[in-house]
Write a protein that binds this DNA or RNA. Structure first.
Lengths: 142, 142
DNA sequence: CCCTTTTCTTGAACTAGTCAAGAAAACGAT
DNA sequence: ATCGTTTTCTTGACTAGTTCAAGAAAAGGG
């Protein structure tokens, strides 16, 4: 029997050693449906989905899922925290300077490519995050 | 007669079309002396230097100098805003995950290298910001 | 089905940063 | 040098986003 879609997120949580709760499932669903959503948008979506939830619960869930590696948190300068489910595939982001919209950019170079710093001052580097700054098509045409 | 060091920052300001004021000179000096300093540290340094200054003045000055291209503002996720005077030389940063300390990394590839995104979704990109995440020597040895 | 542990609710608190109005300082013109 | 305009600084209130803390509720192993 094929896995029903609904059980998929639950499995993700269990495999990460996290308890399966309605807020967690709803957050996971909300972020999946809206990549780069800010905390507030996630909160609204979750409430639309399952009714009353405290904002604190959403903050806690977002943190727990991020620490578990299920979500990735990004926060370009001048923006609030945003979350996405694309995790571990080494992709980067484009951010519009004027409207703040965020897009995904696949890493051109390959595997875990951008990990080479010329002189890392003895730091043990585990991730290279790239943010491309510019103007999105919509803002350009204005 | 050689340029006295003290006039240098003043010239920078004038050339950018900004008025020369004590708070601005002090901020410029403070950031030069402490690359990657956070706003609060700049405020303290400026007060130690010239006495009473409002925090608002420091916020205003930091913004004005950043807009004029004299300072560069960086803000890694989970950190407050930080400022530096190295501007326009396309260097990047290493940030320690555990203590938050920031280091400079010269761009290995050359001129304005990291500016190529594989597929930029129609964005007009003007800058690529790279942040290397890892653990600094001090935190590693603990 | 119970018990322990984790998670969620409630509500307060905190930090970084912004807004707004008036006083003071810079500096080009007189 | 002094005046007047314009910019900048001071003062003080305020906001958004996030965190802290204590207890109630729910998850899930035994």
């Amino acid at each position: 029997m094929p896995t029903t879609p609904a059980t998929e997120p639950a499995r993700l949580l269990r495999e990460a050693g996290l308890r399966v709760t309605r807020p967690r499932l709803a957050v996971l669903e909300a972020v999946t449906a809206r990549p780069h959503a800010e905390t507030d948008a996630v909160l609204e979506a979750v409430r639309a989905d399952i009714g009353v939830v405290s904002h604190q619960a959403v903050y806690d869930v977002l943190r727990a899922l991020t620490e578990a590696g299920i979500l990735r948190r990004i926060q370009p300068s001048g923006s609030v925290a945003r979350y996405e489910t694309r995790v571990g595939d080494n992709h980067h982001h484009v951010v519009c300077r004027s409207c703040g919209v965020v897009g995904d950019v696949d890493c051109a170079v390959g595997e875990a490519p951008c990990l080479d710093a010329s002189d890392s001052h003895g730091f043990v580097i585990d991730e290279a995050e790239v943010i491309y700054w510019g103007t999105c098509p919509a803002c350009t045409s204005r």
